[in-house]
Write a protein that binds this DNA or RNA. Sequence first.
DNA 1: AGGAACGATGCAGTCCGTGCAAACCTGCAT
DNA 2: ATGCAGGTTTGCACGGACTGCATCGTTCCT
Lengths: 200, 200
Amino acid sequence: MTTDVGLRERKKSETRQAIADAALDLALRHGPHDVTVDDIAAAADVSPRTVFNHFPSKEAAILGIDPGRRRVLLRSLEERPDDEPPLAALRRTLAELYAPDRLRRWRSRARLAREHPSLQAAYVGAFAELEDDLTAVIGRRTGVDPDTDPYPRLVVAVMAVTMRVSLTHAAASHLDDAELDRTVDRAFAMVAAGLPPPGG
Amino acid sequence: MTTDVGLRERKKSETRQAIADAALDLALRHGPHDVTVDDIAAAADVSPRTVFNHFPSKEAAILGIDPGRRRVLLRSLEERPDDEPPLAALRRTLAELYAPDRLRRWRSRARLAREHPSLQAAYVGAFAELEDDLTAVIGRRTGVDPDTDPYPRLVVAVMAVTMRVSLTHAAASHLDDAELDRTVDRAFAMVAAGLPPPGG
DNA sequence: AGGAACGATGCAGTCCGTGCAAACCTGCAT
DNA sequence: ATGCAGGTTTGCACGGACTGCATCGTTCCT
């Protein structure tokens, strides 16, 4: 199940990766606005039409947004121990998304997203769809109906934003991996403490 | 209001309002995707080109995103008493954005945004630009440098998300104004308490 | 009255994104 | 190996979003 691959599946994900790499590389060098889908297609050596077979938009290609990861993420969250507090469970689950080998890429993306609101928008828009599913899971875990009580959705949304701010901050400050981890931990701690004003 | 108005300014904001109204109305009736800029222009009785003179995108027109309000909001935040905690100051400031006479419209927009990710993306993208400014103000208020410490940005982002979730929830549940206020209060209280799991 | 300033408009053009059908490739059964 | 089935890539055509530019009309100011 782990990587059950025929030649077909492998080639597909290779194409996908080539497109994502080309898109990110070009966006970093020229700015997202000055890169066209045709440019990306040419750099990835595929037809422009193929770009849209893998990503719903140019921005999604640059950010490497992968609809397939949604399932993985959800299962991962569902498998967290029941007694873990929602915020912690979400933090652990989300950490998988930013696995070490991808960290450099995520850093670049965070920086780009911060500098270009259109990318930011695409990122959050993509997450919005995932948000519904995560909310449902948290609702089940906590025994709270998301339609009645905004708590589950609030937890998910706050967690997402905390992760985003931490990553953005780390990327902007050129922190290394250890420092990034500390930053994320501190951010979650601040949220768990209710974001008190620093002066005390 | 002391809106220093010549005929010119007034007519401009009237066309602006006409466009926003037409856009929202059409989007509510047919769904954002099935409304074209030409439709909006026709309904507002202006040229399609004029729509883009007032709004940067179709989505912005539907959501009535007004770049001019940014200044107002920032001044409002700067004028809050210094000893007010950041979360509370932001909550009060943002409340002005949803003044009573506009509440019905905001409700519709919240509902639309929730159902259509593209609108959600536009909404958040627009807010992202404001976020930088708000972050700077909070940084000054708390004496924390946003480039060194993620705290100010985190507070702003969490507040924005809290507001969004509350509004969305209220809109989806058809709460009346009093209930909406309570919902927002409760959401901010939950955040200030660190979002503990409901079971205790 | 007359010019400066500004908003509205029309037009041309670029780019994004989608539906469709044809070409192509892999997996599989015969 | 052969041929069929199903999935992927491609080309084509098209609708729609958005921008730059030149122009026209109206308001503002003196």
